[in-house]
Design a protein around this nucleic acid. Structure first.
Lengths: 346, 346
DNA sequence: AAGTAAAAATTAAACGTTTAATATTGTGCA
DNA sequence: TGCACAATATTAAACGTTTAATTTTTACTT
């Protein structure tokens, strides 16, 4: 691979001249400019950005650590990051931890998980990234980003306890509110919920949204209308009976998978989802569009989360002293009304 | 950030000594070794791998260009690449072209697509990657990788015309063969096909597999049993009637989406998929597991493709003269037999 | 005590850039 | 002709490492 030095030698000029020309700096005659550019083409010269980085000390790159890129939600978030970085002429360095492949489901207890994250972060720092975005795919509140990093970091999608690390999360409260509001608007007042795991902040926030929607519409909150699921289709299936015993007319599932389970059980009981019992989901997984009838649900603002996380980190880079960003950024969801919630007459 | 120079100064030794110690080279006393390591901890030193790369001239990294990481199949392929690279202590530099977001569906006609790919490749080269994997997400045969690169490249998933660039593709012929063999084993001989777009090599290969399975089992190939689809659910729906007119007992769809369309139409006609008419798919998309009955299909070896692409490129790096790898590597699929193909009595 | 080999440490150049500080030209004008 | 000044071009140091070559120190032999 050709270097500046070779170009310079071939053209009988100094390396400084070549460098200046390459960087569109003034102070070179048109003649030498032409000659140099010609040689550049001829020798197929490409600048060595490693050397360039070393000298200029800015890499225009940020590190992005994802827990597992094959998990739903992760690619879209990264896509959002990519889009914004591209606009700002930054590069991303993506690290795929493959967490769920390595540790199954128990990683958050493990010291080796924390030290693995720490290792990867420091590897990125040694590569001179200017900031780090950690894209969580799990639902726990975890302090997985060390607080004493020499560069800014932000958490995307996941919740973190750390005050020092800003996070960008889904406005789950608002999302749940919107879909419940829609259900209420269709005339329902006996609305069951199948929750996610109780220790998940996502589930907690969605429950708050549910409660607020009821409250604002003068419907009394009835704890026996909420049934604890665990995000799996099976748990949706299992909770259905208990909710039906309460004579609910609609069931809000905290994800689309569980809504699938509800459909399953309803059909077994020869009840028509969306007709006899209304159902709503959350997440807008691809498959929910093919449920029969197609599921009304909440679209997660995944792309936006990535985009905003990137905005935050690049902003932190600009004015590095001022970490005056609030700790938690909430990004709004989009309701996606399909056919699974039926209007009922009072 | 601390540098070797600072460590050296603080310890009253030369930078060479520090460097040697850091790289576990012999020729330093235990005493200085201890002292240096202590300072390293104290100053929170991390090596600057940019400088290191520059000097040693190997980056231990490969570039991975994906057309769109939010497309099904892409994340799993990249995951396979990651796994292998991790084993070999290589890093990947992922570039997300966001092709489908930028150009919708017409990109392959466009010069700006080619020049975009070329740009990204050269950016990667300027970052000193040692090789490049291009992960295609489309179905055309495209010569999108320039042939005169100074580093090796391989194409993953997509087909390429280029003889110089090895490719790793799904053994579609074998996959189709396996699922058709299964259908035949259940007693079917009137087997309809809904193909993908005709110009897609994937569709072509799958058709060959279909034909071979028939041939080897003494069933005559009947062209009126094949109906040209375009991968969409709608096209599956539309082809169903034409196939039923031929009194087929089973329908093989070249992807799971179209199989969904077949289910839709069958249900409209009050025929039970998997009972009255057997159906099989291809790809093993998440949603096909939730069809009723769950779809028998072919699992794409996505992870394996990535893994193998990575093996190939790292092997090319070892013995760089010898590019003796055959041009096209085919990776076998796994049949996934669920409930949509019924045994029939002759 | 001198000589020598092994062990430990240092020196200095190099990797491919950028950039501030100089130096060399060329041109117009008195 | 000589001077000033702009326009071009060059020099040399620096970025943080690695590494071959060299020097200094230590320890052992006789």
């Amino acid at each position: 691979m050709a270097t500046i030095k070779e170009i310079a030698r071939e053209c009988n000029v100094s390396v400084a001249t070549v460098s200046n020309i390459l960087n569109h700096k003034p102070g070179a005659s048109d003649e030498t400019r032409k000659m140099v550019m010609k040689k550049v083409k001829e020798l197929n010269y490409t600048p060595n950005s490693v050397a360039r980085n070393l000298k200029t000390k800015n890499s225009r790159s940020i590190g992005v650590i994802v827990e597992d890129m094959t998990i739903f939600s992760v690619p879209d978030i990264v896509d959002g990051i990519t889009e914004h970085c591209e606009e700002k002429n930054y590069q991303i360095l993506l690290i795929n931890l493959r967490l769920f492949k390595k540790f199954q489901d128990t990683y958050y207890h493990r010291d080796d998980y924390y030290s693995m994250v720490k290792d990867e972060i420091w590897k990125l720092i040694s590569k001179q990234v200017e900031g780090i975005i950690y894209v969580a795919a799990h639902e726990r509140t975890i302090r997985c980003i060390p607080e004493d990093l020499p560069i800014p970091a932000v958490m995307a999608y996941g919740y973190t306890e750390s005050e020092k690390v800003p996070s960008v999360v889904v406005n789950d409260e608002g999302g749940a509110y919107q879909i419940i509001k829609h259900i209420i608007d269709q005339g329902h007042s006996r609305i069951g919920v199948i929750t996610g795991k109780n220790d998940s902040p996502h589930a907690q926030e969605r429950l708050v949204g549910y409660q607020r929607a009821l409250y604002e519409n003068g419907i009394l909150y009835n704890p026996s209308f909420v049934c604890v699921g665990d995000w799996t289709r099976t748990s949706g299936y299992q909770c259905t009976d208990r909710l039906l015993e309460q004579n609910v007319t609609a069931i809000f599932c905290m994800n689309d998978l569980m809504a699938g389970g509800v459909y399953d059980r309803l059909e077994e009981l020869e009840l028509r989802p969306g007709e006899d019992i209304s159902v709503a989901g959350y997440d807008n997984r691809e498959l929910s569009g093919y449920y029969k009838p197609p599921l009304s649900t909440i679209t997660l603002p995944l792309h936006d989360i990535g985009y905003e996380a990137s905005e935050i980190i690049l902003k932190m880079l600009e004015k590095e002293n001022e970490d005056g960003t609030e700790a938690v950024h909430r990004v709004n969801c989009y309701p996606l009304i399909r056919k699974s919630v039926k209007k009922i007459k009072e």
